[in-house]
Amino acid sequence: MTKGDRHNLFLGLLFVSPWLIGFVVFMAYPIFASLYYSLCHYSVLADPVFIGTKNYTNLFQDSVFRKALTNTLIYAAMALPLNMLVALGLAVLLHHPIPGRGLFRTMFFLPSLVPLVAIAILWSWLLNTEYGLVNHLLSLVNVPPIDWLGSTQWSKVSMVLPTTWGVGGMIVIYLASLQEVPQHLYEAARLDGARFWRQFWHVTLPLISPVVYFNLIMTIITLLQVFIIPYIMTKGGPARSTLFYVQYIYDTAFRFLRMGYASAMAWILFLVIMLLTLIATWATAKRIYYSAD
């Protein structure tokens, strides 16, 4: 290492030192502490007491934990395809010039800026059984009132709709990537007689696939950590049908002060996220096209 190299190393580390310190204090330490707590009985009021893997073995016996996990997975399985399709679909519809395009784009994007607390409150009003707009609109086409938030078969669907309303960020990301698709490829496809659907399937989708993958992973991570919307709209009810994973962690840690048990749950959540990310990566690996540059 030359003197210049050493000097640069020193300078580089100096500039990144805020992150290094923050990483150690606010990330690395909490990760190890969380791992340790997950092996402890810990109420935060007293020092943690080591109990080995008991928290983890208890989790597998805990029917509420299983309920929270399956609820979250079912919810994600409903919301993920819907949100991905709506976002990509609207972006494709918006991509080419059309009257009112700017207005439509603003309309689709604005809901994603609304604070989640406000989203949850206004959707619980929209989905109100007696006075809500959704049931009113359904009644215009002769659908009897649906007990959106009070029945176990609809409660999870009610948590999906607010997130679909907020896909505007994804739409903007898709629009930017659609812009990058070289125009001559469409012209070539058109000369070959490819219509809209085949153009989309053989030109658009492969070229924006890295962005689809990015949105897919981000959506999975966000959906599995949903907290505010069910917490405000139903508090986990009815019959725990909207008790989702992070709410159970929150309740366990901060209401029942079982921090060790909650830490174990948080680690399982991390593993589930990792696992699903890996599955998504593996499932899409062959279809993702990275351009040469």
């Binding site: 190393l9 300078l11 990144v16 990483f23 990760i31 707590y37 991390f270 990792m274 990310t277």
Partner: peptide, 30 residues
């Protein structure tokens, strides 16, 4: 700035984005 280990360390920066907040919130609280 060019320095040894820079790009490897940057991968660590990116990796921290994968850590869900619930994992670190309890130790941060304590």
């Amino acid at each position: 700035i060019q320095w040894r280990g820079r790009d490897q360390l940057f991968l660590l920066v990116l990796a921290t984005m994968m850590i869900p907040f619930p994992v670190i919130m309890i130790p941060l609280y304590s």
